[in-house]
Simulated assay, not measured.
Amino acid sequence: MVLDNKLGLTNSAELARMEEQISKKAAAQLFDTGELFNFEVGTFKGLSQIHKVLFDDIYDFAGKIRHVNIAKDNFQFAPRIYLEQSLNYIDKLPHKTFDEIVDKYADMNVAHPFREGNGRSMRIWLDCMLRDSLQKVVDWNQIDKDDYFNAMVRSHVSTGELKYLLLNALTDDLGQAIFFKGVDASYYYEGYQLYKTEEL
């Protein structure tokens, strides 16, 4: 099944290629223009702003709450009928300490508010919280893909494993290069690896 898209593409591989190229370029511009640092930190509004910028040229649903139930590998994300309630709850959670930030990130992952592109936009959202409160970000290249996904699957029960991975990958390098490489690693987790963000 190919998601309806603004590009009129009906081939899943072609859509994936264009989605990677367009949204990575948008991510680079988000950082380079400083627009990213004007978004709300730690709220669904801020996350939806990130998602909209990344995917607005590709999907009509960019930045909008999904209207369908979704699952991945037999894990059911928050049911649509409870989604807005869940997001209101998450918005009120504190995000000042490392533990609070990761717990909030894990809760947002369970919510999975968008039809597509949740992980990629949420990892940028997580880094915004870490940057704002701790003056650090995650060096995503330090985290193995399988280790990350295993920790995320278990994070709805316990965030200990996820916290261990993230804590050991924190850096105080807040520059463009680490952001671009982080975007590339984040996309690699989801199977997108044709383009380098710095080259777009």
Rank of each mutant, 00 (worst) to 15 (best):
K24P: 02
D60L: 14
M108H: 04
K45Q: 11
K92M: 09
E35A: 07
K72I: 06
G63N: 08
E14Q: 13
E14V: 15
N74I: 06
S23T: 11
W125P: 01
Q21P: 02
Q193S: 11
D139M: 04
R80T: 13
D146T: 14
M108T: 07
V138M: 02
H112W: 15
V102T: 02
Y59R: 14
K6S: 08
K6C: 06
D32E: 12
E190D: 14
N118H: 07
Q176A: 12
D4T: 11
A106G: 04
H156N: 12
N141T: 14
V138G: 01
L170F: 07
E84D: 12
Q193E: 10
T43G: 14
Q135D: 13
F44E: 05
D172Q: 12
G34R: 00
F77Y: 14
K45N: 15
I178C: 06
F98V: 02
H67A: 11
F37G: 03
D139F: 08
M108D: 06
A106T: 02
D147A: 15
F180W: 10
D91N: 15
L54A: 02
G34H: 03
L134Y: 05
R115I: 10
F61K: 14
N5I: 05
L126G: 00
D146Y: 12
M152W: 01
R115P: 00
V53Y: 04
A151N: 04
T197C: 13
K64N: 14
F179A: 05
T43C: 14
N74G: 08
Q85D: 12
H112P: 09
F31M: 00
A106H: 01
S186N: 13
K92C: 04
L194P: 04
T10P: 05
A111D: 06
